[in-house]
């Protein structure tokens, strides 16, 4: 029993940067994200026995964190204290220069990700950034695999349009990407 807590504890600390990155992309503001990470760690330690060895620790943690976030959003929504999170865009950082530049040129990738609908952003993060499989992402998000795929495809389409990615890098590049 103490092994489970010990193991979760050790992995938790090593995993903090990734957990925080996912949290920031969910709440898009660092203060709230840090509180959320802390709450998720507490929850994970309290239920360490429920982590099944051999399954992905990162997926388990993302799921705990995301469920806490959903609860929190519901509370805020119903309590009328929502201090419009959708207006905050913290992923790309608050660089005035970059904002000015974005008006002239295409958006940076970070900006484009920041502006995706929540449900697309989270699936893009889980699959493309955190490298979860579709199945694992579906489990984290509690949705069918088909939903993961359609959200993911839409996310990439908007991302490509917003940033000017065309996919025309040539065959050798693409094959390299496939084999990575």
């Amino acid at each position: 029993m103490s092994d489970a807590v010990k193991e979760v504890g050790e992995r938790l600390i090593a995993f903090l940067p990734n957990l925080r990155r996912f949290a920031i992309s969910l709440c898009r503001t660092r203060d709230i994200a840090d509180d959320l990470v802390q709450a998720a760690c507490e929850r994970a330690l309290a239920s360490a026995e429920r982590f099944e060895p051999g399954t992905r620790f990162d997926a388990w943690m993302f799921r705990i964190l995301r469920n806490l976030w959903i609860d929190q959003v519901r509370r805020q929504k119903t309590a009328g204290v929502q201090d419009d999170i959708s207006e905050r865009h913290d992923i790309a950082g608050a660089s005035g220069d970059r904002e000015a530049e974005a008006r002239l040129t295409l958006k940076t990738v970070a900006d484009a990700i920041d502006h995706l609908p929540d449900e697309q952003r989270e699936v893009l993060l889980l699959v493309c950034v955190e490298e979860l499989s579709y199945r694992e992402a579906a489990d984290v998000l509690d949705v069918p695999i088909g939903t993961v795929m359609s959200r993911l495809a839409r996310a990439r389409k908007s991302l490509a349009e917003a940033t000017g990615i065309t996919g025309a890098t040539g065959r050798s590049q693409v094959m390299k990407g496939v084999n990575e």
Partner: peptide
């Protein structure tokens, strides 16, 4: 090739763009 490339490039671009958050000191 370019249709596949779109998916590969968006994946790589997303990963690269989010790297800075990982590198941020906690």
């Amino acid at each position: 090739v370019s249709r596949v490339g779109l998916f590969i490039e968006t994946r790589q671009a997303a990963k690269a763009a989010m790297q800075s958050l990982l590198d941020e000191p906690l």
